[in-house]
């Protein structure tokens, strides 16, 4: 059995790497992929807390299913954005997207 701190370590490191990916990139698709990494780290931390709790309620895993649903919806939205912007010749640089700016 893995110690609990190891699971917190992998979750924390994946969260930090995803945060650095969001902060350091301007490409739209790469930012959304980094958000997917943060979702993966949050599922790891949630399942490790669930697995190591003494009196864990299985209904806590509804949260896990909702995280998966949000991740799946985000990937669908990403592909929709990708195909639209690719076919219309819009740049993927998010600093150049200014149509919704005030």
């Amino acid at each position: 059995m893995i110690p609990f701190t190891y699971l917190l370590a992998i979750g924390l490191s994946l969260f930090g790497i995803g945060l650095a990916g969001i902060a350091s990139e301007k490409h739209l698709v790469v930012i959304l992929l980094s958000i997917e990494v943060i979702f993966a780290s949050s599922t790891i931390i949630l399942v490790s807390f669930f697995s190591f709790a003494s009196n864990a309620d299985p209904s806590a895993l509804i949260m896990l299913v909702s995280i998966w649903a949000v991740a799946a919806a985000e990937i669908i939205a990403l592909i929709t954005f990708y195909v639209y912007m690719k076919s219309n010749g819009i740049s993927f640089d998010i600093s150049k997207l200014s149509k919704l700016k005030w």
């Binding site: 701190t5 917190l8 370590a9 992998i10 924390l12 930090g16 945060l19």
Partner: peptide, 12 residues
């Protein structure tokens, strides 16, 4: 940011 979080997790 990534390096700081990796060092934190490796220190754990």
């Amino acid at each position: 940011i990534a390096l700081i979080s990796l060092s934190l997790s490796f220190s754990i």
